[in-house]
Computed example of a mutant assay.
Amino acid sequence: MNIAVLSGKGGTGKTTVSTNIALALKANYVDCDVEEPNGFLFLKPHIEKTEQVKVEYPFIDDEKCISCGLCVEVCEFNALAKVKGDIILFQKLCHGCGACKIICKQNALSYRHRETGKIEKGYAKNIKCLRGVLNVGEPMAVPVIKQLLENVPEGVNIIDCSPGTSCNVVNTIKYAKGAMLVTEPTEFGFHDLKMAVELVKIFNIPFGIIINKDNGEDNIIRKYCKEENIPLIGSIVYSKNIAEIYSKGDILYNNAKYKKLFDHMAESVLEVLKWN
């Protein structure tokens, strides 16, 4: 079962929850925040396997091409342009849809491959750990995310999503059967949480909310959960000690006090997501 951990905005503690919940559930950890994958900084897995992620891009045979411009007209992603009688290709804009090759009457187009990122796999604290890493300068993270999620291990997978509600997140939660939404009790956190809730509802999967930096009061997030009848999986107190542990790159689950907290949260996850 794939359980997505997402947040409406960055900095809410999504990776903190993902890594510690994975340990509490003895589940596999999958970092899909491929532009900024930082879960391995805390879990520190021994990486045993690395594989490349490659995408297709069109190659133009200048001897066959007559610069008719049909490929330019059919490309919906502006990866091709006609400039002074020449066809110019912008590789990083190409989505590999194949339309240009189909429409070319001169058979001047073929496809080649280029690397856009990598996937790393390993083990830490007796759990499997996987992450995708997008190459610097690459604009499209989705191919890395798709290849990563199409090869996840069997069993329970905690999927650490990208922050926000972008296409990266959409293409991640398509693989999920349940979701945990991490937020903080601030106006910004509340605003973006509501967008994340609407996104999860579109996929019709069970979900619950986790409050980070919780002050213990009847704050706006708790009131929202009551009004909308959304399960509250748990909360993490606003603590200087937690910030110190985090800043050192240590895992909270190694601390007896916080181990108990995440073990209890893991039990709530099983109940909220109706999974056994």
Rank of each mutant, 00 (worst) to 15 (best):
E35I: 02
K54Q: 11
F40Q: 12
K54A: 03
E73I: 06
Y111T: 13
Q91T: 15
P37Y: 00
Y111R: 08
I3N: 09
N126R: 14
C68T: 03
F40A: 11
D62Q: 14
N28W: 04
S67F: 09
N28A: 13
I21G: 04
P45N: 07
E76M: 02
D86R: 15
A24W: 06
K121H: 10
L89P: 05
G122E: 12
G117H: 08
E56V: 04
A24E: 06
L89R: 10
A22K: 02
L93H: 09
N20W: 09
D33W: 01
L109F: 14
N2K: 14
L109R: 12
N20Q: 10
C32H: 02
L70S: 09
L41K: 07
S67W: 11
I102L: 11
A99Q: 03
S7I: 06
G10C: 01
I21L: 15
C32K: 02
H95V: 11
E115L: 01
A27Y: 00
L70W: 02
K49D: 09
V83I: 15
C75F: 04
V72L: 08
E120S: 09
D86Q: 15
V5C: 07
Q52L: 13
C97Q: 01
S67Q: 10
E63K: 15
N38G: 01
K44H: 06
G10N: 00
Q106S: 12
S110V: 13
A124V: 08
A99N: 09
N107A: 08
D61G: 01
L70A: 06
I47H: 06
F40V: 02
G39S: 11
N126D: 15
A22S: 15
